[in-house]
């Protein structure tokens, strides 16, 4: 008893045949091969599985794959374009915000959802957007610094986008 779902995954329209009980996390990892979506806790508490659906950061472990139908879905794999890192990824490297890296994809997606929506977020807003993501090694100070740094990098990059197009 498979279900067909159609959705936009990292910019491409795709169709998948899934089981009704599979989570978005299962399907993105096992069928689409997007292993940047990590399972930490499986119960919505760590944020390692964070993806963006229709512009909002959500825990893919708490979402059925069937719920992706008709949605716009972004995972960490969609950040890099033409071999060029996304500026949030660059900021994480620059600020030493990655250690084992397990939490990083989720952190990047939470940061992206915020920066896509808010031009210049306050520290409170940044903290609010990142508290659903746990890290057991790198340290939150570096991670918050990286997001702050990314907000500064955003403006010039947007100008590039305009001149290129």
């Amino acid at each position: 008893m498979n279900l067909e779902i159609d959705f936009c995954l990292n910019g491409s329209e795709i169709r998948l045949s899934i089981k009704p009980w599979e989570t978005a996390l299962d399907v993105l990892r096992n069928q689409s091969g997007l292993t940047g979506v990590k399972e930490g806790c499986g119960i919505g508490e760590c944020g390692a599985c964070t993806i963006i659906i229709d512009g909002k950061a959500v825990n893919s472990c708490l979402i059925l794959a069937a719920q992706l139908d008709g949605r716009k879905v972004e995972t960490v794999e969609g950040l890099e374009v033409d071999g060029k890192m996304h500026f949030i990824q660059q900021a994480f490297l620059d600020k030493g915000a990655v250690q084992c890296g397990f939490c990083t994809p989720g952190m990047l997606m939470s940061a992206k959802a915020l920066l896509d929506k808010v031009e210049n977020p306050s520290t409170d807003k940044i903290v609010e957007a990142m508290t659903g993501n746990l890290c057991r090694c790198a340290g939150y100070v570096q991670i918050l610094e990286a997001v702050r740094e990314a907000t500064c990098m955003k403006a010039p990059l947007n100008k590039d986008d305009v001149t290129n197009s």
Binding site: G47, A57, S110, G132
Partner: peptide
């Protein structure tokens, strides 16, 4: 409630 990810759904 929970975290932003939880409040988003």
């Amino acid at each position: 409630v929970g975290s932003l990810q939880i409040r988003n759904v």
